[in-house]
Design a protein around this nucleic acid. Sequence first.
DNA 1: CAGATTTGACCTGT
DNA 2: ACAGGTCAAATCTG
Length: 272
Amino acid sequence: MNILESSTHNGFQVVINEIEHQRALVTGLHDLIMPILGSCSGEAKLVQELFQDIFRSSSKVISFLELGDSSEKQTNIITKCKRNGGNNSLEGHIMLEEEAKEIGNKRRKNAQHIGSVVTQAPYFDGYQWRKYGQKWISKAKHCRSYYRCANSKGQGCLATKTVQQKETDGSGKVRLFNVDYYGQHICKKDRIIHPYVFETAHQSVPIGNHNQSSSPMFTNNDAHGIQDESFENIFMVPGIPEYLTDFADIEMVRALEITSMKSPLIPEDLWA
DNA sequence: CAGATTTGACCTGT
DNA sequence: ACAGGTCAAATCTG
């Protein structure tokens, strides 16, 4: 193993350890929240689903990283899937949902799918965005909005995202949005510092506590891009405690943080 | 008035 | 032909 391979492997191990640590933290949070919500409420089901999503996602990342430098294997799987064109063969079934999505992608520009997030707060991801289009998608209940990085003009940043409200369970209490990210940000110094949770030995800092005073993230939506929907409509979800709406946002921010950490060796599909 | 958003038209891939 | 992504003129807003 040469130095480069060794350092890459060590880097992966650090990431794996961090993700394992995050899983432990999330488990603790889960155990804390679920008794408060009860087991039958719609919010509890939603929160349960979000936790499951987080675990599925982290398991996926860990199992990928544990394959080590076998990124070739992953590439082969994807290639095979693409060759099969989504037919009914066994290999076709191996195809991940995200990969299938990528194949069916009709984007002409910025076709690089960076990742997807389901969140209650689709506009708060640390970047500023400008809406450039909106479209009713066939058979979808809600229209899809198209955003590009606010620095697309000034710095030529090609990052875009689409936001589409998910169809809910019908209760209408909670609005979830699918957010798909395309293209890497190449713009500089425009990011808002993430409200990371830094854990100390025996004391966890509450979510949202960091940078809250210096960052407008939790106090002023004007500084965060999109204003075509009201702040209240997005954040003040009836029946959901404030710390839970914060959690949903932290989840998204973390997903993005992982995205920004990714190795060029890892296929984009993994991060979807 | 400048910059952001909206919206219908246009373009492209399937 | 159709669905979905982008463009650009019109409109809105601070």
